[in-house]
């Protein structure tokens, strides 16, 4: 069984009483260790799909199984535990807390885990080492460059050693050099550490890092190709 399996997935948003179908019957599976890029034009529903896969949003209709478990059957606590222990998130806007240090930002997921508090520093340091930011642990995020901020966000996503990393336009706010650096890290995580990476992008050059590209258009899968 695939790690992620969605079938006839639908998502409808309601704005001012008007229902908008954003996803219209999406079906696919993602195996462990895959590097998948979800592409599509603006408003195609690719980010919504990523949020649903990352348990950040609910589905309206259809089924979603994560590692054989029906997501719809999970309560709030179980979903939170899944997000904490089996998933990591990298956002376009980094979403680091500016008032705390890089180290404390990376420790954030540990606060909601069962990892003993005395090991947090060690675990977070290893995570920062993996992205080459061990020399910035005491910095406030505002003192980091864009690329460094995204690497800190990757370190945070990695800290609980999740099976899947969801990345929503991770290079969207970066220059091309920093973008390549960040993608190099994600690529390494997939190749060396066998993390499953699911990436949303509209950039063809970024999508080239993935082994499989799912194109979405008007809420439906337009194509699903392996490189």
């Amino acid at each position: 069984m695939a790690l992620i399996e969605v079938a006839t997935l639908e998502k409808t948003f309601e704005f001012d009483g008007v229902a908008t179908r954003v996803l219209k019957g999406i079906t696919f599976g993602i195996e462990k260790g895959e590097f998948v890029a979800i592409m599509g034009p603006s408003g195609s529903g690719k980010s919504t799909l990523l949020h649903i896969l990352g348990l950040l949003d609910d589905i309206t209709r259809g089924t979603y199984f994560f590692d054989g478990q029906s997501v719809e059957q999970m309560d709030e606590l179980a979903q939170a535990a899944f997000r904490n222990q089996r998933m990591g998130f990298v956002f376009q806007a980094f979403n680091l807390l500016s008032r705390i240090s890089v180290m404390d930002n990376v420790k954030l997921p540990l606060a909601y885990s069962k990892v003993p508090e005395k090991t947090w520093n060690n675990v977070a340091f290893q995570s920062l080492q993996a992205v080459g930011l061990e020399h910035r642990i005491d910095y406030q995020p505002t003192r980091l460059s864009g690329g460094e901020r995204q690497r800190a966000a990757i370190a945070r996503a990695l800290v609980n050693n999740p099976e899947v990393i969801f990345a929503d336009e991770p290079t969207g706010n970066l220059d091309s050099k920093s973008g390549e650096h960040v993608m190099g890290i994600l690529d390494g995580l997939n190749k060396k550490l066998k993390h499953t990476i699911i990436l949303v992008t509209h950039d063809v050059n970024i999508a080239k890092y993935a082994h499989r590209v799912i194109k979405i258009k008007d809420g439906q899968i337009e194509s699903d190709k392996h490189h």
Binding site: L56, A81, R83, N84, F89, L97, P109, Y112
Partner: peptide
């Protein structure tokens, strides 16, 4: 609000 969203994304529950 964004911090709340981030905390939930990394595993915080309503109760947390």
């Amino acid at each position: 609000v964004k911090e709340i969203g981030l905390r939930k994304a990394v595993g915080a529950t309503k109760s947390d």
